[in-house]
């Protein structure tokens, strides 16, 4: 019986070079270079996945059944927790608004604040974060397991491109499902905020809705759902990418999944920060 000891990181040729004697600046430059190389490689691979999924979609080589199956499982998996976070975001913003605005500002402003915070920010972002935990992590773990057990190799050996057969249906399904989940989260969040305002501040529903309409633009709906689409696209793209580059057995799957979650959250937050710069000026 042969026992292979995996020395992990330590085995790279880098580790064999003497660490001492290299000036600090050189080491910093080295680290910077490796970091830049990593970012460039990720960016390159991500764009290949996007390209692969788009060509598969536009040449009609994506299984419609797979897309529907993915949409169903993504929707069903996430809906309960999405609704819960939606209600809670309404309850919280409503109470915070009530606390801040008592006295100085007319109370119907609570309606404006609740609705715009939920529609513009909390709805899309909280839903996306929940989606990352329930769906994005699952995709990376699933594809990562397939990668380390040679199932991805098997798929390729059968002349089926993994990005087309596994990636594209998940990316398309995510792009369609997340905006719907955002819409649900928005509606239930507003309802939660309205009922909380009524219960805690004695603010009537008509007054709440009056305040809501006062600062509301139809554009806000598109903005909210559009964010959902962008997040719903980028989350599975990153999840698929991280899954397909998994290596190193069960431990590798764990590592890929947690790293993937961090990248997906960062991507959502960074995109969320750039959205107002582009659309709300």
């Amino acid at each position: 019986m042969q026992v292979e000891l995996d020395m992990g990181e330590g085995r790279s040729s880098e580790a064999l070079l003497p660490k001492v004697g290299r000036p600090l600046a050189v080491r910093w430059l080295g680290a910077l270079g490796r970091g830049a190389e990593g970012v460039a490689r990720h960016a390159g691979e991500l764009s290949l996945i996007v390209w692969g999924a788009l060509t598969a979609l536009f040449t009609g080589r994506v299984s419609f059944r797979q897309v529907v199956r993915e949409m169903y499982s993504m929707g069903v998996q996430s809906l309960p927790i999405v609704l819960l976070t939606g209600i809670l975001s309404g309850v919280v913003t409503s109470q915070q608004g009530g606390y801040q605005f008592t006295g100085s500002v007319p109370l119907y402003v609570v309606g404006s604040v609740v609705v715009s915070s939920i529609v513009l920010e909390l709805g899309p972002v909280l839903t996306a974060v929940v989606f990352i935990g329930r769906v994005g992590a699952r995709i990376t773990a699933e594809l990562g397991t397939m990668k380390v057990s040679e199932q991805i190799d098997a798929l390729e050996s059968l002349g089926r491109d993994p990005v087309r057969t596994l990636g594209a249906p998940r990316i398309i399904a995510g792009t369609l499902v997340l905006p719907m989940l955002v819409a649900f989260a928005n509606l239930i969040g507003i309802a939660g905020g309205m009922l909380t305002a009524e219960a805690t501040l004695g603010l009537g529903r008509e007054t709440f809705l009056y305040g809501a309409r006062l600062f509301f633009h139809a554009f806000d709906i598109y903005y909210s759902v559009g964010k959902g689409m962008v997040f719903g696209f980028i989350i599975p793209v990153i999840a698929v990418h991280m899954g397909l580059r998994t290596y190193g057995g069960a431990e590798g799957v764990g590592r890929a999944t947690t790293t993937s979650v961090v990248y997906m959250i960062l991507a959502v937050l960074i995109l969320d920060a750039t959205f107002p710069m582009i659309f709300l000026r």
């Binding site: 397939m146 057990s149 040679e150 199932q151 190799d153 098997a154 798929l155 390729e156 050996s157 059968l158 002349g159 089926r160 491109d161």
Partner: peptide, 29 residues
């Protein structure tokens, strides 16, 4: 992909698709 479809590959550890039945596995071939 065309060349790969002309070839069959038997993996050392079988590498069956573990979410699929035997029928589905073999029919992907």
């Amino acid at each position: 992909e065309r060349i790969r479809r002309k070839a069959g590959y038997v993996f050392q550890n079988a590498a069956l698709f573990d979410s699929m039945t035997v029928f589905e596995n073999v029919s992907t071939g």
